[in-house]
Design a protein around this nucleic acid. Structure first.
Lengths: 184, 184
DNA sequence: TCGTTTCGCTACTGACGGTATCGAAACCGA
DNA sequence: TCGGTTTCGATACCGTCAGTAGCGAAACGA
């Protein structure tokens, strides 16, 4: 049932090394200084190889984030618990080295790049929107609002101060949102 | 008491035209394509003149935003009313042509530019933080949290969809925040 | 008219995203 | 061992854009 391996030189597992090198470079130098040349050098790969696998820097970062984030850990039994879990999960992820800076950087790039915005909306936001809609039993509009508030708040703090949000504010965020989504 | 006019060619009111040209260019072409050459051309001014008055593109955009936003219209009598007023005010401003894109663009630039982040924090956020602290009678931490939630949410929606937040979601944001800040 | 300051213009540098080309490496099947 | 196929590496290159240098001219006050 496994498709026959195509002939030619195989695509060895370069993605993992590229993703790691991308996050490390972004963590060290920031999003704008993390050039494709530097990422390629850090991964021990030619720059042309990057462009053979990803159409643009934004697409590489987006895929890197998809890989770094993984699925949202919700179980679908208790709505309030799932919301708190999701908020603490994404807070922790954004606090990981390079993830927050990469997130904010690609998000900014997307503001004036409709193609990248499409990539971001479909590859990043869409899976989490669907998962949260099922787990929380909320409408699409309310889940999108939930994502806007959580991610927007965390990224704004990250962009303004350069550091992730402190725990007491995360707790306040959880209480505020939880109260809003359970008061009806 | 007015300081004697210095000799030499006077600095005529170029700022207003430059700010208008900046917002118009950003509105037409987006943040990244709004190059300093294009802004200068739209303002009928040489590019070198821009760099004589602002040290970088980010600083120009930041000053342009300060000019476009103006003071926050709070009166300091009713806390809930002032919060709703402030939220609707910044929502409307971000929805104005070019303001939202400029805001998101300079915010992204600032993520990896500590100098620009300093400019943004002091020239943009600081005055509003002080005004809101006085009007709302809240601590610095809670006002900064308030700003993170409001601006972050609006910018995230703007960046993800390319359009400002619809009115029903703005109302939900006001209710959620108002409830959170008056429940103790 | 002279001194001072700002402006416009042209040309330039350096960095970066992205592309083109060509030869070599890595695999499969025969 | 030997072609066929595909991917990779290296180098060179283009276009764009932020930011700078230098010079002459314009706009004032005295």
């Amino acid at each position: 049932m496994t498709p026959a391996r195509p002939p030619g030189r195989p695509r060895v597992g370069i993605d993992a090394e590229v993703f790691a090198a991308t996050l490390a470079t972004v963590h060290d130098l920031g999003y704008t200084r993390a050039t494709m040349d530097r990422i390629a050098a850090a991964a021990g790969v030619a720059k042309t190889t990057l462009y053979r696998r990803w159409p643009s820097k934004g697409a590489l970062i987006a895929d890197c984030l998809v890989d770094a984030l993984g699925p949202v850990p919700v179980r679908g039994v208790d709505r309030g618990e799932d919301m708190a879990t999701a908020i603490r999960w994404i807070t922790g992820k954004i606090g990981e080295p390079g993830v927050g800076a990469a997130f904010a950087g690609v998000f900014v790039d997307a503001v004036n790049d409709s193609a990248l915005r499409e990539v971001l909306a479909t590859r990043l936001q869409e899976p989490y929107r669907v998962a949260l809609q099922e787990a929380l039993g909320e409408s699409e509009q309310r889940v999108l609002f939930f994502i806007d508030v959580v991610v927007g708040t965390l990224l704004h703090r990250m962009g303004m101060t350069g550091a992730p949000m402190v725990d007491s504010d995360v707790t306040a965020l959880i209480e505020m949102i939880g109260h809003h989504f359970t008061s009806d």
